[in-house]
Design a protein around this nucleic acid. Structure first.
Lengths: 402, 402
DNA sequence: ATGTAGGCGCTACGCCGACAA
DNA sequence: TTGTCGGCGTAGCGCCTACAT
């Protein structure tokens, strides 16, 4: 009759020893559902571009700190490394269920342009499950007063059909989370007007996962009809890195040193990508990068669209205008394409949206692509208006593989 | 009427915004009480010896991993750095209350032996509070069935005296934790036979701190008569570093790179010392290091004592014998004095005690010190038995500041 | 269609002394 | 001296509908 252990799941893998790190890769569909519709992982074996600059931004975000400006870069570490994506495993934090991907990368020598152009445009499927729903929890859902109110369409789409001959119609649901722990819920259809509810078992789940109003839960049904459930916490309460292990300086320098050492020795290195914490993806398929850098003509004043995730876990495009171009950090990362575009957004509610994006983040509205292959030098010489000196010099200095 | 927020403290600094990292240094007495009687921090402004090797061991322990053997050391990073201890701040993890110290170090040029010998033997006071008690929680203490049974002497020593004219004698206690949050308890003296108990308020504290049987709580009374309380968790459930931020390789390399960069530029760097997680102290006062290395004659077969912490938070000495001497990691850290002694312990219950310790960890039993100063070379040439070739060559190669 | 609140039964939290170790 | 238990009152958890949006 202990206090805390009682809130564990009722069945399943609780008997296993305290295994703090998931060993194997998790259920891919559920992982992607938790990660959200925008998260696309490059396939294993493909070539990717790794941006140490973006990696340090994720580390800084995890520690809720600004990027340390006083850490110098390694003189030989370029702002981007072309790598072979040697392996990807999907994980979830044991305590928070936060999803993250472990990637092992092997730096490869720069490819010549011919090869680069011949690389296929690798299609990355989001692998969002078709049979799933996601609901942001209300105060009533998380209070101790009652259960969970299931949106009608959601229940009808992913839950097994109820026997409406019963009064009231009810069934027991079993769903597994990312750690393969099973949770039991009583699913009942009652009330006036009628509605779908989760009652018994729901509060145990809320307590164990420490869910609060504003967090979201999602249910999916796999191709065998098995239910799975995951959570997406509100941004404000994402896991915070304990600062008690390494100083942020050491973390920052560790990212750079690991990449630098791997690049110098062409050896494997390992990074973690936290899709819901990282400000931007910092491992990009070569084809996506190349398509944006080589084929996309951008200029100040150009209009574009960009995809964002809505609160209801679908996607929506916002419109914006390029207001400037230039290095985000000209001292430490000169001639980097990382978030080199300064942008403004059409909608006034755009306070949260980033003021700097990368070329491969945006979709141009008009005349998007030039014929390929066309030398960069030729295009840079073409007269175009509305560009300042900084931009011009950046374009001149930049070359594809630097 | 929310589920989780209700278990917070009833008064005090809950209103402050979600501040994940303690800014200022905490109450020193309470911190030291939580850290335990063996933890002695060198004073700010003194010179210390920093061992990157020991630092990586702490990081590995925090991640519950072995030290990565495949990470090479930086060619110019010595196994120890003499540093000025520029600053020390005391902290506690927001989620677990685990105590840790942040130290900023500035590498300084090696001092000549004369200066080293003249440096005073800095006395480090443990600053354990005199009025305090520590109790390991029983199953009854942590169950939901009842409150907390206070040891009689403990209650009489640190709690305000009860008015025994009341029936039953009782009072309300207020105590602040390391985060300056206040907790309220009903302290009552009742039962047959009579005993001291904490009833109302205790279960809230246990839930909020997620205490389990085996964890320890401690109460202290400061010089103003204010009560403070802290916790010491059982080793098995110490905070585990989330592996989702940096790979262990990057952490490991980050420690080395930060120290290497600071040593090369004589600039400040920051480390965290987790006294209850780290296998050994890796920042040692110069005087302590010097006293052990320069003055202490050790040889295989020598008997020694070493201090350990008991379960009741006092100290006790165990006896042992030196069984070997030599580098722990001859490849990456040659001629390091870090845990260079292989030892065996007298008591058969010594399974948990370390098999390797450093010179400054032990207290020799007989004829401990030679007159000082006496050249190392001379002592190394003196004939002594029972030493193998490895030890001899190590002693010959080693010099004070390498 | 679904969030919130009132009503109310019943579980289990938590306060008590009785034992024993 | 103090760990655990049986006894027990009651706070609050959680299931139900009503009502509002």
């Amino acid at each position: 009759n202990e206090r805390l252990p009682s809130v564990g799941p009722s069945v399943g893998s609780m008997a296993q020893p305290a295994e703090k790190v998931e060993k194997r890769s998790l259920n891919s569909e559920l992982w992607h559902a938790c990660a959200g519709p925008l998260v696309l992982l490059p396939p294993v074996g493909s070539r990717v571009v790794y941006f140490p600059q973006g990696h340090t931004e994720q580390v800084a975000a995890s520690m809720q700190k600004e990027v340390d400006a006083h850490i110098p870069n390694y003189p030989n570490l370029p702002s981007r490394l072309v790598c072979l994506l040697d392996n990807v495993t999907l994980h979830a934090d044991i305590e928070t269920d936060e999803v993250y991907a472990q990637m092992t990368l092997i730096p490869v020598p720069p490819t010549n342009e011919k090869d680069a152009h011949m690389s296929p445009d690798i299609e990355m499927r989001s692998r969002q499950p078709t049979e799933y729903f996601c609901k942001t929890l209300t105060a009533s859902d998380t209070s101790t007063h009652g259960g969970f109110s299931i949106p009608r369409r959601a229940a009808e789409k992913v839950f097994p059909p109820l026997d409406y001959a019963q009064i009231p119609p009810a069934q027991e649901l079993k769903a597994r989370d990312l750690h393969d722990q099973e949770w039991h819920f009583r699913h009942i259809y009652r009330g006036q007007p009628r509605r779908h509810l989760l009652t018994t078992g729901w509060s145990v789940f809320v307590s164990a996962k420490r869910l609060q109003a504003g967090d979201a839960v999602l249910f999916t049904r796999d191709n065998k009809g098995q239910l799975q459930l995951g959570i997406r916490r509100q941004n404000r309460q994402q896991r915070v890195m304990p600062s008690s292990v390494l100083s942020s300086d050491s973390m920052h320098i560790g990212v750079l040193a690991a990449a630098n050492y791997a690049a110098a020795t062409s050896s494997r290195f390992t990074i973690f990508y936290n899709p819901r914490q990282s400000p931007s993806e910092f491992v990009i398929p070569v084809a996506k990068y190349q398509k944006a850098i080589c084929h996309l003509q951008v200029s100040v004043g150009m209009r574009f669209r960009m995809v964002f995730e809505t609160e209801e876990s679908s996607v929506r495009r916002y419109m914006g205008t390029i207001t400037g171009m230039g290095d985000l950090d000209p001292i430490r990362w000169p001639n980097s394409h990382w978030r080199s575009l300064k942008v403004g957004w059409d909608e006034s509610t755009a306070g949260e949206r980033k003021k700097r994006v990368s070329l491969w983040d945006i979709e141009p509205l008009t005349f998007p692509y030039v014929l390929c292959p066309q030398p960069l030098a030729f295009r840079a010489k073409r007269p175009r208006g509305g560009r300042d000196e900084e931009t011009d010099s950046m374009l001149k200095k930049s070359s594809f593989w630097s």
